[in-house]
Structures are given as structure tokens and as C-alpha cells.
Design a protein around this nucleic acid. Structure first.
Lengths: 134, 134
DNA sequence: CCCTAAAAAGACATTATTTATCCTTTTAGG
DNA sequence: CCTAAAAGGATAAATAATGTCTTTTTAGGG
């Protein structure tokens, strides 16, 4: 339970690398993939997701590549993780609909809610800036 | 990420049901499975794990079955979940050994550590008694 | 001592998810 | 047009989750 998938790990590695590059640098996917040691085709999918939700900006064609859409201190670890893993949900019953059909007064529901809140709070308190600076 | 597996869900359902039974009641696996709507063979594996780590006591043969090994207020949700899902570990790098081979000064490590602590704290604050009473 | 009830254990089958690759399409620059 | 690069789609391979079946061990009761 609770384990970050490889995809999530790759996502963090990739975007933290990007955050560590000079602002004006348009990075090629292949270069990022090589630098962070992730299969390029897999990282491509991840960056497509980043691009869709506006974490990074992408440019096609010659001279294209990726840059961060916002400054590193404005992007949280939570955004990065949820971009590729989906919303953090410890149990189906905090998912909104379809909630706790097994019992009208579900005592576990609020527990998962607390877990979810705690985790999201921790991750949203960390920015790419925190992760890239040394 | 962070999703409880079906196994974990079944485990909770099963042991909460057991906690809700009279103390002197030795429950049959098949009865529990029927009551909580879980495949009996699958629940058997789960209860074997409970038995091994001493969450429940099992009795074989005629008149056998399962009872809680401790009173419901002495068994935490954390114990139940970790019994079947293994230790809660958000990322390989909090697992102990094999830690963060990618960087000497891993900035993410302490974040996962915080996540792990928060989650375990929430789950260890809840007992079976909390889950069974209404 | 034998028969039956029940959990324990092991092997296996099925399904779903994760991880990874490949090919085609779109976009843009020169 | 030609080339470089990301986007998108389809699919394969590997791994993990879920579920089933059979045999073994343990214990009670005639």
C-alpha cells in the first residue's frame, strides 16, 4: 500500500531535472531521459501529461522541447505526483460517488479522509525549488 | 498511489466483523466470509496471516474457528493493514537499505518519511473498537 | 482407532495493472 | 519540402493482484 509507482518516480526525477536547468533552456525529451535514466518513450508519456495540465510548456518541431510552465517554487510535489498517478485516494470510499455502499454509517470513511488530507498536506508543502536546491 | 488493495479491504471487513462478535464466539471462516461477502478461500489466506502475527487465534478441527487474540480496543487499524499489505512505505527510499542510490543528498527522502509517519500515525490511532461500535 | 470438521499450506489459474516499445501523426523551423 | 521534435495510438511484455483447487495437518467425538 501507499507505494509510489515507477511512473511517479520517473515523473519526479524528470521534472526536478527540468527545474534545475537554466530558465531559458528548452530541454529535449531525449536529453532529460538520458540525464535521469528513464526510458525516453515512457518519459514522453509522462511529459505529455505534465503538458496537458500545464505544469510544463512544450514546443514542437525543430528547436522544440520542454520548459517549466511556472517557477520551481510555484510547483508542488503534490501536483507532480497527482499529475501522473491521479488523485491520491487511500480507499474507494473517499472517492466521492460510490461511497461506502457496504454500510450507512461507515466508520472507516473518515479515517481514509484523514489519511488523504495528511498525505496531500505533506506533499503540497514541498515545491520543486525545495527538491532542486542543495 | 496510496490505494488500499482489495486484500486490505477484505482484511478490515473480516476482522471488524470478528471484533463485533461476542467474545466467546469461535467463528468459522466460511461464516465470516459469507457475512462480509469475500471469497472464502481468499479470506482464508488473510486470516492465516492474522494468525501468524497473533492478531487472531485459530483453532483447528471440529469446533474450530477464529477469535480475536486481543480485545478490539487493543488492535489498531495499522496492525490490520500492515499485516496483509506489508509495511506502509510510500517510496523505496524509506525502506531502509537500498536507500536513494541516485543521489547522496536526497531531498525527497525526508518527504516520504513524513508521509509514512503521518499515515501510520492516523492508522494507529484507530482501533477495531472504534470501527465496530455504532 | 477411525471418521469428520476445520484451518494450514502449497500450487496454480486468471485477471488487472504497470511498464515499456513501436509506429504514425501533427507541428514548426529552415 | 525536408528535418526535428513532440503528440497520439496501439500493442507487447512483465509484474502484481485476485481467486481457485487440492492436499496436509490438527483436533474432537464416537
Amino acid at each position: 500500500m501507499m507505494e509510489l509507482t515507477r511512473k511517479g518516480e520517473y515523473a519526479i526525477r524528470g521534472i526536478v531535472y527540468l527545474a534545475g536547468q537554466p530558465t531559458d533552456c528548452i530541454c529535449l525529451l531525449n536529453d532529460i531521459a538520458t540525464a535521469v535514466d528513464v526510458p525516453a518513450t515512457f518519459l514522453a508519456k509522462i511529459f505529455q501529461q505534465f503538458s496537458k495540465i500545464g505544469l510544463v510548456k512544450s514546443f514542437r518541431g525543430t528547436g522544440g522541447g520542454f520548459v517549466l510552465a511556472r517557477s520551481p517554487d510555484k510547483i508542488t510535489l503534490l501536483e507532480v505526483v497527482e499529475a501522473v498517478e491521479g488523485r491520491i485516494v487511500p480507499n474507494r470510499c473517499v472517492a466521492g460517488r460510490d461511497e461506502c455502499e457496504r454500510s450507512v454509517t461507515c466508520h472507516i470513511h473518515p479515517v481514509w479522509q484523514r489519511v488523504q488530507n495528511q498525505v496531500r498536506d505533506v506533499l503540497s508543502a514541498v515545491t520543486l525549488k525545495d527538491l532542486v536546491s542543495e
